[in-house]
Write a protein that binds this DNA or RNA. Structure first.
Lengths: 232, 232, 232, 232
DNA sequence: TATGAATGAGGGTTCATTCAT
DNA sequence: GATGAATGAACCCTCATTCAT
């Protein structure tokens, strides 16, 4: 007679202990999937727990609240983005310092490609990070994460300008503008297919940036304005 | 015999019908204030009702659900924005058709100024419209509202390009990019003061767009790439 | 054909609106029954709601929290007790002032009987008031209610002493002692039948108090102590 | 061959066995501190474990449930009280039997002092024992513990009466009354400082008991009641 | 039309208890 | 024996929505 293995009776709900880093990751993964598909507020902790294969209470061993799960997702995404960006930027600077004769458009391409790639590979996170509303205490840290990334992008523009590779009068604001433009549209494209053709969007963005950052461009003198369109 | 009273009540009825529109507006106003300051999910219908000076049940005579209140706010905002934009664009086109010799930068200025002005005057709505999470069925209509506005902006770029006033190869994508960049940052600036200096942001945006849309710019030929920064 | 009355379909769960005073009383009554039989912490709001014939949320229209339901029960009980006691005391004082030649034991009897009667008629409340643990903020008010009653009892003793009817050197402490003795035992007797015979307890209490409060009793001089039983 | 190591481990084992009793005590001590300061229901097993310096699961090696921890505290307290009381009573009886000419008030003093002392030294336990709600199955045993102590007190009164030292017609009920009066007020005084002056309370209690238990007191004949205050 | 008392499903969170290690 | 990660039932409470008035 075949002995009934204890394991058999445990197909359902046997307590499993796992390395905490893995548990944490599983919970975040489950939360990400749900938050992105249903929205943060529309997802219950019950659902997250179920999807992560743990009990509801277990989540609270790893995160003090539902909000903190969201924050962790944001943090992971932003830190990864910042890291990825930092690599590219560092590489470009290295080449620059090495005296290589670079075409700035190649660098723009590289950065864009990296950023788009990063977002595309994490399109679930994108929706969560971009769309899910802030909320009181979360906001502070979320903004900090944001700031760090923006500082990186701005420094890239600034360095490029210092080397005469590109032209921009205000690296910080340029960073804000470019970041928002690209992220918001990638998010929208990934989540709602609006714009539907992401490659076309990216191509247009590159083209715009080529021109907007082009060095040594002589703008024609501005003619004095003849007509005021509005007066208020 | 017809009682005279009917006349009176018909007069009164007009008074009762009109307020209906006013009630709706009062509710929306109250909701806007609360949603923007506390967030949609953090605001209760009770609070909206109280702030609007009506009973909770009354709101449901005007809106089928809380979500629809939010949607109405979005609609109002987007329609107003589209209208405002349409006015500017129409005016510009009129001038163009009139053969006026315009500097495209003036038009960019006008549109930017109008858009920024519109947002600034409605900064409460901005937070709500830009930041509050999508939510299932709302998304469809919200996107429609968005599309309408984007179509307008795209048509402006297209028309400008047709007249040779500006250069852009892809008006639709350009519309997406510019809209996202400007709206997201205005929202962020208005709500979280990040970037803190809105005027500086707008100026930077204008400068970038001047260059990006500049007609007749000869881009230098792109050198063949020597170094691949990454291979994936 | 008999018209189907709308009422018929509403046997279960038809919304009923009642005067709020009545609703409140119904909720308290249900809570009292449950708290006394199962204990405060062992009773869920769900159960209270069900027993009161209302929805869970309805309770929260009348009480801000479960704790406040308990507090309301305490308040009602203590206020009723204080009122009942005040009536008896007032009556006794009236008679005294009227120069009636009273036997103080009759007054003790009257007060005891009233108090016992009040407790017996509310034996469910007794368990709740006496046994259910305090809890942070509840404690303050619970003590206040207690104090009021004790002040009444103390004033009764003091007045009696002033009239020479009884003898007590410390009316306040006497009030504390008598109140605790009687209430605790009534509660215990009513709830756990320990002591089982309430009448016997009351009789013993009366007898003790007759002697303890007897006026004009000459206590024999205390002999100097010869043996120390313990030295620590 | 027997390894010498066994000897060592047997020595160690004694060390391991003994701590078991010590562990239990440490857990109880921690629980007592927390239950008394925060309340039973407001204290988590986690907190008890932490305070006791053990893991949560360890507590369950010593007590089958949280309730049983509470019960153990009650038992310890009551047994200690009974023991302490028994010592005093035994001593008094010994003296009595030795034909010593005692003043009963000295005995009352001794008992009171011992009881007050016992409570004061364990004021944390007092709050727990007196105030924490009963709870279903705990009640039975809690009452048993109570009964034992009450039996002791009652026997003291009875013996005293047999020796003609004091007068009381119902030693059992007297025990109930005196015990409740004194314990409840000590608890209240210790926990909520109400009454604030414990010494004054004890003094009043002694004075009352001196009179209430005084032997050979002739109570005046009770006059026929003239006025009925109430008729129900 | 307007009200607001009533509803009750569902929310996030807690915590006594268990059990794999 | 000791641990503490894991469990999951149960908790109190909220609030969008309904409906008797």
């Amino acid at each position: 007679m075949e002995p009934v293995r204890d394991d058999v009776s445990s197909v359902l709900k046997r307590r499993v202990v796992k390395p905490s880093e893995q548990r944490r990751a599983e919970i975040l993964e489950a939360a990400l999937k749900l938050f992105s598909s249903k929205g943060f507020h529309e997802t219950t902790m019950e659902e997250v727990a179920h999807a992560a294969g743990v009990a509801k209470g277990t989540i609270y061993l790893y995160f003090p609240s539902k909000e903190h799960v969201l924050l962790a997702l944001k943090r992971d995404f932003m830190q990864g983005l910042t890291t990825a960006g930092a690599d590219i930027v560092a590489e470009a600077i290295e080449l620059l310092e090495g005296g290589k004769d670079l075409d700035y458009r190649d660098i723009i391409d590289d950065i864009f490609d990296a950023v788009v790639d990063y977002h595309t590979k994490r399109h679930e996170a994108v929706e969560v990070v971009v769309r899910q509303s802030p909320s009181p205490d979360l906001m502070r840290e979320a903004l900090d994460l944001e700031r760090e990334y923006l500082a990186l992008v701005a420094s890239a523009f600034r360095t490029g300008a210092e080397y005469g590779l590109v032209h921009t009068e205000d690296p910080e604001m340029t960073a804000h503008l470019v970041t928002a433009a690209i992220r918001d549209n990638i998010a929208s494209s990934l989540c709602y297919e609006e714009p539907a053709d992401l490659e076309r969007l990216v191509e247009a963005a590159k083209q715009m940036l080529y021109k907007a950052l082009a060095p040594n461009v002589e703008m024609p003198p501005r003619r004095p304005r003849l007509v005021r369109t509005k007066s208020d």
